[in-house]
Amino acid sequence: MTQEIDLLLIEDNASDAELILRALKKNNLANQVLHVKDGNEALTFLMGQGKYEGTKNIPKVVLLDLKMPKVNGKETLMRIKDNNKIKNIPVVVLSSSREDSDINECYDLGANGYVVKSVESDEFEKTISNIGLYWLTLNEPPQ
């Protein structure tokens, strides 16, 4: 794995992942994307451990689903933001929840953004495209 990863997608749901990746692909943003299905794997990647040892593991943005098996979204977020080596990596939470409690909790844990996934695929695709374009092309990541 020598390929540079600009975007880490942490999403356990296959259909959501497919729709997200399809939206990114449409905007030619999918080349440097890594999709993992749970928080543990994401952390292993970000820490350069296990099978990710030796890879460049500082993505420009992490898209994090909140509801996941094993280590859920919030715990994953907490672990990233608690770790000095990786805490500067921008994490954008993707969630179906519009609950105030969820939103505030995520910001308290250090989330850099919070986006609600729409049921309507047109709108969802547009949202993902905008996120990708913003974080991968407009935003200057920490060096």
Binding site: N13, S15, D16, E18, L19, R22, K67, S95, S96, S97, E99, D102, K117, S118, V119, E120, S121, D122, F124, E125
Partner: peptide
Amino acid sequence: SYSVAHDLRTPLRAVHGYARI
């Protein structure tokens, strides 16, 4: 309720999304 909302929304999004595809 919010789990249900999530759990219901995700397949709905899939239905809508695959129809779009």
